[in-house]
Amino acid sequence: MTATVPNSVAAEAGEPVRVEIVGRMEQRRRRAAVFFLMPTVIALLLVAGWPLVRTVYLGFTDARLGGSEQASFVGLANFGFLLSDPAWWTATWVTLKFATASVVIETVLGMVIALVLNAHLPGRGLMRAAVLVPWAIPTVISAQMWGWMYHDLYGVVNTLLVGLGILDAPRAWMANPDTALWAMVAVDVWKTTPFMALLILAALQTLPHEIYEAARVDGVHPLKVFWRITLPLIRPALMVAIIFRALDALRMFDLAYVMAGANAATATLSVYARQNLVDFQDVGFGSAASTLLVLLILLITGILLTVGRVRLAADAR
């Protein structure tokens, strides 16, 4: 009837190391979870896991597209050829330059736009809608639109720059490898800055008002507030956004393919790999190039994660 306090129970058991007992109900839930996950896991293994394994494997063979004869194992030969192919090196530099330039510019510009959007002033709704437009336009279409604007004879970019007196004669932007790369960066910046801005904006909106009010009461200069308070606070979110953008930029294909075609001077690694794989029908060589791109991306991600000291909080709980 009355409650006693049996301290003795635990004491008699000699305090064994307790393993958390998973009850029957929890077991049932876990079984259900396995069933629930199964279709997704199978689908991902089928469309991602298996093809990835095959791609890596094919990189060590001399497989050819449509070739009926059995592919044979050639060891590291494909990788050796790759590293001695100047076109691969060009593609690597193009990819790295493109990724670095576009991510840096997008971060800075995205920050500016996010700060503007975060200011509680009229007109921000319109602006948010406006920045979403480039994001919604398919990359291929962006590439075509800008390709037309860059046109050497009739492009509006030339007209504008000549009209403003910045250039004295129209330029063939896409014909020159240097300007072509920057032209591509400009398109990517135009298209993906909104994404960056929205991510930064979301981070900004999580910051408590009080901090800013306190800073204002203390009379801290707004620029100092930005450097000393805002930036450190949103740094983790910013780093994650930068990594996502970097990964995206490193695998860029559509822009380069549509704007510059197979032009070796502006081909990215993705373009290079597909070209070997499909156009030159050299599946082994193309697969090796793909594998190397994955390794490169892993390496860069690792560096970014370490330098940025980011912990991807996939699942804290």
């Binding site: 089928l46 993705s270 790999a273």
Partner: peptide, 13 residues
Amino acid sequence: FPQVAVLSGLFEL
């Protein structure tokens, strides 16, 4: 993931 990384395997599949 870069899509090109699975391109040949997926093509085969």
